[in-house]
Amino acid sequence: MARHRVASTEDLDENERIIVEVQGAEIAVFHTDGDYHAVLNYCVHQSGPLCEGPLSGKLVADPPDFTWDYDDEPRVVTCPWHNWKFDIQTGENVRDSTYTVPTFETEVEDDEVYVIRG
């Protein structure tokens, strides 16, 4: 597996992202909760630029009352084309986990952020 530098840590503030090309693929790297999450900038729905959409938390509802609660952990990216939502840590669609987008491992070394790919 090859390691590809995508940014310096100082270039990527908390809750920001950078979209880079790695071996011909557009990959977004999100900086959230002190960690870095790499996701293919490609929505499996209709090939939209998934990672150009907003990053947010999500509503949850648990029994017995199923009252809506907002989980503010910013790990849901919403495709700007049709609002499909994916978890940036798992790549799974938050409404149907059988839809997933590729995710990639990341590393930080000497204040440089790397994506591991291919």
């Binding site: 509503l59 509802a61 049709h82 499909w84």
Partner: peptide, 15 residues
């Protein structure tokens, strides 16, 4: 529309 607007339906955990 669940896939697009499902954030309004947090209690559903499948399609």
């Amino acid at each position: 529309y669940h896939l697009g607007l499902g954030s309004e339906m947090p209690m559903l955990d499948k399609l």
